[in-house]
């Protein structure tokens, strides 16, 4: 019984590897992950792989405007996806647009997660009036659709990259705060936290290196869904003309620019940026969907 040799469990599988192998069970999710990686690479290296710099006005020729997909430019370049009203190559425009859309979505998502996590942990650990105040604020915010809150905020704040990121953070933080408070309240009663308290570890250390890592699985799931939501919301707001300024065209603005040409049958200006947006959002949702199934203990057989 008290022998010093400790027998290792038969299968020593790291949690991460188990996660990866369970994730790989669904082929659709794997496809989503692959596509998402490609999109991220495209966004990251957009200036290197774009056939044209869409913001260098000296490279644009107004004679090339509104050309259908596959046509050749004056100097022999092929516009695989056509050109927009200014003679801009749509493919390059989409690469750069992806860059803007993803940057805004991911950055605001990460900021919202940090703010939400801080607020949720404060609510769970401080309790009392602070908790009531924070959670009432969360409830109030969650009872309104995101687009409405964003609409009010942007109407109040005005336009700009910083303003839309701020609006997206304000819209999203409450989701994270609610989840992390719930999880933290459960986790802090677990045995390992008691053990850590018995060891005399400081409160911040328990919170940040013991409780927080155990709260991460639901946060990751929420995070993927939220980033997809943020990208879609930003595109919608830009489409309505109250999002990003014209100097920083995201996919939403590209689509909006094509609206006026759509009725005369020039579909490609709106169509292709929309496809890019759709594929991005779908691949994020596919990954998030599978993550939820993998990380949800209620579905374990």
């Amino acid at each position: 019984m008290s022998s010093p040799t400790v027998t290792a469990p038969a299968k020593a599988e790291s949690p991460f590897r188990r996660l990866v192998s369970e994730f790989a069970e669904d082929r659709l999710a794997v496809a989503g992950a692959v596509v998402l990686t490609i999109i991220l690479l495209i966004a990251l290296f957009a200036p290197l792989i774009s056939p044209q710099n869409p913001y260098d006005l000296s490279k644009l020729d107004i004679l090339d405007s509104r050309m259908p997909p596959g046509s050749k430019s004056m100097d022999g370049m092929t516009f695989w996806l056509g050109t927009d009203g200014q003679g801009r190559d749509m493919l390059s425009g989409i690469f750069y647009g992806l860059r803007t859309s993803l940057a805004v979505g991911v950055f605001s998502g990460v900021c919202a997660m940090i703010v939400g996590m801080a607020m949720g942990l404060i609510a769970a650990y401080v309790g009392g009036r602070t908790e009531t105040l924070i959670m009432r604020l969360v409830d109030l915010q969650l009872s309104f659709p995101t687009i409405l809150i964003a609409l009010i905020l942007l109407a109040v704040l005005g336009q700009g990259v910083g303003k839309i990121i701020l609006a997206l953070i304000i819209v999203q933080w409450s989701y994270y705060a609610r989840i992390i408070r719930g999880t933290a309240l459960v986790e802090r009663r677990r045995e390992y936290v008691e053990a850590a308290i018995c060891l005399g570890l400081s409160k911040p250390r328990i919170i940040f290196s013991h409780v927080l890592p155990n709260c991460m699985p639901p946060m990751i799931v929420i995070g993927t869904v939220q980033v997809a939501g943020a990208i879609a919301l930003e595109a919608t707001l830009s489409f309505l003309g109250i999002g990003l300024p014209i100097t920083e065209p995201s996919l939403g603005l590209l689509i909006a620019n094509g609206f006026e040409y759509l009725l005369s049958g020039k579909y490609w200006i709106s169509f292709f940026p929309g496809i890019a947006l759709l594929v991005t959002i779908i691949s994020i949702n596919l990954v998030g969907d599978q993550l939820r199934d993998v990380l949800n203990p209620r579905l374990k057989r």
């Binding site: 879609a232 595109a235 919608t236 489409f239 939403g252 689509i255 759709l278 779908i282 949702n285």
Partner: peptide, 25 residues
Amino acid sequence: AGSIVGFSLPTFWQGLMFIMVFAVM
């Protein structure tokens, strides 16, 4: 799979495509 597409489609773009297909074409 269809529901993921439906869920992911941005409303405004989907609306534009509806107009393009069912009203224009």
